[in-house]
Design a protein around this nucleic acid. Structure first.
Length: 950
DNA sequence: TTCTTGACTTGTGCTGAACGGT
DNA sequence: ACCGTTCAGCACAAGTCAAGAA
């Protein structure tokens, strides 16, 4: 069977984590038998749980003080992407010290080689002269970042430096001209405190010496020799050669230097504030999706075998890679297993097995128009899926191309019809009789009474406007102010309580019932393989919860009916029966150039669609995921030239060119999103291309302060030191414009991406995010993993993950109980400290006696104390101190991560092969890093060789 | 060329299961 | 066994980007 299964889910093993052993070489753990055993059970125990309601509310997430990126050593300074916390409080809280030390990044200082820098994540690149000035950092991070770069030892100093300013942090990047950077960065040490520490040379030596890097050494060596390298982008290789550390130092291409040198990054703190609110209505449908036991299919897709079979190595070249990615699918044969079976698919596989199809697929947009009148069937659709040849297949993203040959599924499941509760709300103090339809909408609003939404005017206005349409002109209810939804709200609370009070048996029964109803919708069969369906539940009606200041928040999201839904299914396959009697689907299509199983128009914005796709663990999704990472890896080979290219254009006389250059720089350095144009009926958020004059402030001599609301209205706040030409260009772009005007008036994402494609096939703005995230993880893991305990290794991974999350500005709301929890933790620590101190005092006393040859007397238990050797006593004291340190560390970690979300980057930006290879090399059970779901999603990456480098 | 449509990825919060301490 | 905290997984909003239509 597939490795995947074994690895991940052996039944036998139960939950025991499997660990990859190095010795095993690339092999994954022995596989088990096929499907048999592995079951993944998604079912959870129906116990009652206390949910924590973290809520929503406001997030004020502030970012942890993480340092964003350290300086880069080289050329590009990474933007510090740190986000600053919104709340001053939070900011102040952060401490920089701890993490940083761990985070240190590889650094290269002197690098002579530019190349190396290019490979490096921006974060790691050197700063040119960093003079570290510390900028005002707001504190937390500013320093942090720098510290991070530094070797641990260095941190101390840096710590001092750091101040807790609550304000903004500025990053300091040095803009130093390249020159500065280069040659002797070592020399820079003088300037920079941090820097000094960083001598590459030193580092290298340290590693070998101080740090026990067992694995590393071996590993590295291997890499260089490995064939595997072929696969790897050059850049990646470089690092490997010497010690990772050496990377920087070693490379010599000076060519590159200039560019790199130029970039300096500031690490500013960024803070992000969040303004999301969120309360959601209870959705009817939610439910765990557990797996049912379904038989699994062991069938594999016919494949080419391109896949990687066992050998992880099969590395296809990048180009192929995408095509050949192997994917494991979850298939189940039988009911019981939900275990994913590994399968490999090659894009072409399916085709093979199946009869060749014509390849005509052209990609046309869906034929369905909204009107649906026009249903055009474009050629593609018409074509039978069956016949495409593999060669024709195009990567999923590419647009054209057949995605499947046969597709079977059972459609979607609808939420239950509204069940009136009969509780009367008050209007002007009087109970009001409402029809079920009117009551349903009133209830949607009532249950949100304690959320932030209920206090927002836009939300209330939109809700009331839509509700009035249902009430009709002549309804007694005319003014919102006279409405009192409290009775319904209280009813809701009672229902919630009832639910909570149910016994576990009752809950279990309910769950099973639900599972039984949903089981048939959970699976689809694609090219003969059973695959999980992602979101087979139609969204229930409710009030739209747009994020930020969304102009449509509160509008009624009407109930979706079968007549709103378009089904996509294989030709010749039975069309799913419409689950609601007397109704029928809007349309049934047979389009094998797309991966959706069904869609309906978003009731809030008719121009948008809601799709039903396969689950992330499916082969189709896995293949596309792999292609995404392969494309990002390819960027490694082009990044140097791209940087040279845009640097050259910073001073172009062609404004359009200049804007493209500066925008690309910001996307590369700061990991900004592209920034598509938005309509007026959407929240007012921006990305790089849509930055407005008031989103960027020039802080002389060469810093830029960004403050804007990005995706999901998450605040991006960061002050970064940039190269002087960039600074000047931004200043120029802002000149003569008003606050709300676009900084990049000659640019939009289409133009930018068009330009990027000239630099590298398939390159788009978002690829930089993936590239910088993955290469940062790869670099930190290689630079900082040392021999140590499992927990220590996991901590290294977490720090690396955190670093990436900060770069990407992935935030989360601070849990409501965070402060309480911290207080408790502090009390516990203090208590323990006092206790431990007493012990230490006692031991010290004993130590003195022992040294003087005196008897120890009796212990607390009245028995004479055993005489310990001084060394033993010292050791004991040391252990106690270590324990205290560990607790402090845990506390810091908790504080640091309170506003940082690690999951998003893990799921979307970090090439799983980096993690898998690292786990194999360092014998860390993959389950310690990836949850069951993520493991299933990344089945395609499980058999990577241990020496894989991004 | 620009606008619109369509498809798919990315991102945050909520809910309830899992975990760990008492 | 109970209970609070942590975390996995889901829901669904909000991005990106390509291709077709105008």
């Amino acid at each position: 069977m597939s490795v995947f299964n074994h690895t991940l889910y052996d039944n036998d093993d139960d939950d025991t984590p499997l660990s990859f052993k190095r010795s095993s070489t690339s092999r994954p753990p022995p596989s088990k038998q096929e499907g048999s055993s592995a079951n993944i059970t998604y079912v959870r125990n129906p116990k009652a749980v206390a949910s924590n309601q973290q809520r929503n509310g406001i997030n004020g997430a502030s970012r942890s003080p993480l340092p964003l990126k350290p300086q880069s050593t080289g050329s590009n300074p990474r933007p510090s992407g740190s986000v600053q916390p919104n709340s001053s409080v939070e900011r102040s809280q952060k401490s920089n010290t701890v993490d940083k030390s761990k985070l240190r990044r590889p650094h290269v200082e002197g690098d002579k080689s530019d190349d190396s820098d290019d490979d490096k994540p921006l974060a790691f690149r050197k700063k040119p002269d960093t003079k570290l000035k510390k900028v005002d950092t707001g504190g937390e991070n500013a320093y942090g970042s720098e510290d991070d770069h530094k070797p641990h030892g260095m941190n101390i100093n840096s710590a001092k430096v750091a101040s807790n300013n609550s304000t903004n942090k500025t990053v300091l990047l040095k803009t130093a001209p390249l020159k500065t950077l280069q040659p002797d960065d070592d020399s820079d040490d003088d300037h920079k405190p941090l820097v000094q520490r960083f001598n590459p040379a030193k580092r290298a030596s340290n590693n070998s010496t101080n740090k026990p890097v067992l694995l590393k050494a071996a590993h590295k060596i291997v890499q260089s020799n490995d064939d595997s390298e072929d696969e790897k982008p050059l850049a990646s290789r470089l690092p490997t050669n010497a010690a990772p550390k050496s990377r920087a130092s070693t490379s010599d291409s000076e060519d590159e230097k200039p560019l790199s040198a130029r970039f300096s990054r500031g690490t500013a703190g960024t803070s992000a504030s969040i303004s999301n609110s969120k309360d959601k209505l209870p959705s009817n449908n939610k439910g765990p999706n557990n797996n049912l036991s379904a038989p699994r299919n062991s069938v594999k897709r016919p494949s080419d075998n391109n896949n990687q079979t066992s050998s992880a190595l099969k590395k296809a070249k990048s180009s192929d890679a995408s095509a050949s990615g192997s994917v494991k699918r979850e298939s189940k044969d039988d009911d019981n297993n939900s275990v994913p079976v590994e399968r490999k698919l090659t894009p072409g596989e399916s085709s093979k097995s199946k009869p060749p199809v014509k390849n005509i697929v052209k990609k046309s947009p869906l034929s369905v128009k909204k009107d649906n009148k026009t249903f055009k069937t474009k050629t593609k659709k018409t074509m039978k899926s069956s016949q495409f040849s593999k060669s024709l297949r195009v990567p999923p993203g590419s647009g054209g191309g057949k995605k499947w040959s046969t597709l079977e599924h059972n459609g979607v499941i609808f939420p239950p019809p509204y069940n009136p509760h009969g509780v009367k709300m008050l209007y002007n103090g009087q109970p009001v009789e409402l029809t079920p339809e009117e009551e349903e909408v009133a209830t949607m609003f009532a249950v949100m009474k304690d959320t932030e939404y209920a206090a927002k005017k836009t939300f209330v206005d939109n809700f009331f406007g839509d509700w009035k349409k249902i009430l009709g002109k002549n309804h007694i209810i005319k003014k919102f102010e006279l409405c009192d939804f409290t009775p319904i709200y209280e009813w809701h609370l009672r229902e919630k309580e009832k639910k909570k009070q149910m016994t576990s048996e009752e809950k279990k029964a309910l769950k099973e019932e639900k599972l039984k109803q949903e089981e048939k919708y959970m699976w689809a069969v694609v090219d003969g393989v059973r695959e999980k369906v992602g979101n087979f539940r139609v969204e229930p009606p409710g009030l739209f919860r747009g994020r930020g200041e969304h102009p449509k928040m509160g509008k009624l999201k009407k109930r979706i009916r079968p007549s709103d839904i378009t089904i996509n299914i294989g030709k010749g396959t039975a069309v799913p029966e419409c689950p609601i009697e007397g109704e029928s689907w809007k349309e049934v299509k047979h389009d094998n150039t797309v991966t959706w199983l069904a869609f309906w128009n978003d009731p809030i914005s008719q121009k948008d669609f809601k799709y039903v796709f396969l689950a992330a663990s499916s082969s189709l999704k896995g293949q596309s995921d792999k292609e995404k990472y392969e494309k990002s890896r390819k960027l490694k080979d082009h990044i140097h030239n791209i940087r040279v290219n845009y640097t050259k254009d910073f001073k172009s006389n062609d404004v359009s060119k200049k804007q493209i250059a500066v925008a690309t720089y910001l996307i590369d350095k700061l990991a900004l999103r592209a920034g598509n144009e938005k309509d007026d009926d959407e929240a007012d958020t921006v990305g790089c291309c849509t930055l407005k004059v008031d989103n960027v402030t020039c802080v002389p001599p060469n810093k830029l302060q960004f403050d804007f609301l990005g995706k999901d209205s998450i605040r991006y706040f960061n002050t970064v030191e940039v190269e002087l030409p960039v600074y000047n260009a931004i200043e120029e772009f802002r000149t003569g414009k008003k606050d709300g005007d676009p900084v990049f008036d000659k640019l939009d994402t289409t133009k930018l991406n068009h330009h990027l494609k000239d630099l590298m096939p398939g390159l788009t703005a978002k690829v930089f995010r993936t590239y910088n995230a993955s290469i940062t993880l790869d670099a930190i893991l290689h630079e900082e993993t040392e021999d140590g305990t499992l927990l220590e290794k996991i901590a290294v991974y977490q720090r690396a993950n955190k670093e990436v999350a900060i770069i990407c500005n992935h935030q989360r709301a601070v849990s409501k109980s965070h402060d309480t929890q911290m207080t408790k933790l502090n009390e516990k620590i203090d208590e323990l400290k006092a206790f431990l101190q007493a012990q230490i005092d006692e031991l010290n006393k004993d130590l003195g006696k022992v040294k003087r040859g005196k008897p120890l007397g009796n212990g607390a238990d009245g028995k004479p104390k055993r005489t310990l050797a001084p060394e033993a006593i010292e050791k004991k004291i040391s252990q106690i101190e270590t324990k205290i340190e560990k607790m402090e560390m845990d506390k810091k970690t908790k504080e640091d991560l309170k506003t940082v979300a690690l999951g998003t980057s893990k799921i979307n930006y970090l090439d799983p092969r980096i993690t898998v290879a690292w786990c194999k090399t360092h014998e860390v059970p993959i389950e310690k890093i990836f949850s069951k779901t993520i493991l299933a999603k990344f089945g395609w990456a499980m058999d990577v060789e241990p020496d894989f480098r991004f």
